[in-house]
Lab assay of single mutants.
Amino acid sequence: EVPFKVVAQFPYKSDYEDDLNFEKDQEIIVTSVEDAEWYFGEYQDSNGDVIEGIFPKSFVAVQG
């Protein structure tokens, strides 16, 4: 069931425009499960802007 919160276990950096880049310990709200390997989610950056994109499930852990 979406949405749910995950926390980055590792930093994720990608050159693909659709990917969500983040640092370790970033909290991310997952709004869609793309497939067995990928989530789609969002978070607010330090400027208060909402950043969204896809990212690999293996880089995050589900909270709770």
Rank of each mutant, 00 (worst) to 15 (best):
E1G: 13
E1V: 12
E1A: 11
V2C: 12
V2W: 06
V2F: 09
V2L: 12
V2S: 04
P3C: 11
F4L: 04
F4H: 02
K5G: 05
K5S: 08
V6K: 00
V6G: 02
V6T: 04
V7Y: 08
V7M: 07
V7F: 07
V7W: 08
V7Q: 05
V7L: 06
A8P: 01
A8D: 01
A8V: 03
A8C: 06
Q9Y: 07
Q9W: 08
Q9G: 04
Q9F: 08
F10Y: 12
F10M: 12
F10N: 06
P11Q: 08
P11N: 07
P11E: 10
P11I: 05
Y12M: 03
Y12K: 02
Y12Q: 02
K13E: 08
S14M: 02
S14E: 02
S14G: 08
S14W: 03
S14P: 03
S14H: 02
S14V: 01
D15F: 09
D15V: 10
Y16C: 15
Y16Q: 11
Y16G: 14
E17W: 09
E17A: 13
E17F: 09
E17Q: 12
E17C: 15
D18A: 14
D18F: 15
D18G: 15
D18R: 15
D18C: 15
D19W: 07
D19R: 15
D19F: 14
D19G: 15
D19S: 15
D19L: 06
L20W: 03
L20H: 00
L20M: 09
L20R: 01
L20A: 02
L20V: 00
L20S: 00
N21W: 13
N21H: 11
N21F: 09
N21A: 08
N21M: 07
F22W: 01
F22E: 00
F22H: 00
E23C: 10
E23F: 06
E23D: 11
E23Q: 08
E23H: 06
E23L: 07
K24N: 04
K24L: 07
D25R: 04
D25T: 06
D25Q: 05
D25G: 15
D25F: 10
D25L: 06
Q26A: 04
Q26I: 05
E27M: 11
E27K: 04
E27D: 06
E27P: 05
E27S: 06
I28M: 04
I28H: 00
I29L: 13
I29Y: 07
I29W: 14
I29A: 03
V30Y: 02
V30S: 00
V30R: 01
V30E: 01
T31G: 00
T31R: 08
T31E: 01
T31C: 08
T31L: 10
T31Y: 06
T31A: 03
S32V: 07
S32H: 13
S32Q: 10
S32F: 09
V33P: 03
V33D: 07
E34V: 15
E34Q: 14
E34T: 13
E34Y: 15
D35E: 06
D35R: 08
D35M: 07
A36W: 08
A36E: 13
A36C: 14
E37F: 14
E37C: 15
E37L: 10
W38L: 07
W38V: 05
W38I: 05
W38F: 11
Y39S: 00
Y39P: 00
Y39K: 00
Y39Q: 00
Y39H: 01
F40G: 04
F40T: 06
F40S: 04
F40R: 15
G41R: 01
G41P: 01
G41W: 02
G41F: 06
E42G: 11
E42Y: 15
E42K: 12
E42W: 15
Y43Q: 00
Y43E: 01
Q44T: 14
Q44C: 13
D45K: 09
D45C: 10
D45T: 12
D45L: 12
S46K: 13
S46W: 09
N47T: 08
N47D: 07
N47L: 07
N47M: 08
N47F: 09
N47H: 09
N47Y: 08
N47V: 06
G48C: 06
G48P: 01
G48Y: 03
D49P: 02
D49C: 14
D49E: 10
V50N: 07
V50Q: 08
V50G: 03
I51V: 13
I51H: 15
I51S: 07
I51L: 14
E52I: 10
E52N: 11
E52A: 14
G53M: 02
G53P: 01
G53Q: 00
G53L: 04
G53W: 03
I54F: 15
F55P: 03
F55T: 00
F55A: 00
F55H: 01
F55K: 01
F55L: 02
P56A: 02
P56S: 04
P56K: 03
P56D: 05
P56I: 03
P56N: 05
K57S: 11
K57Y: 04
S58F: 08
S58K: 12
S58C: 15
F59S: 12
F59A: 15
F59P: 06
F59R: 11
V60H: 01
V60A: 04
V60R: 00
V60Q: 02
V60Y: 02
A61D: 14
A61C: 14
V62S: 08
V62W: 09
V62G: 08
V62M: 13
V62T: 10
Q63K: 11
Q63N: 09
Q63P: 12
Q63A: 13
Q63S: 12
Q63Y: 12
G64K: 11
G64R: 09
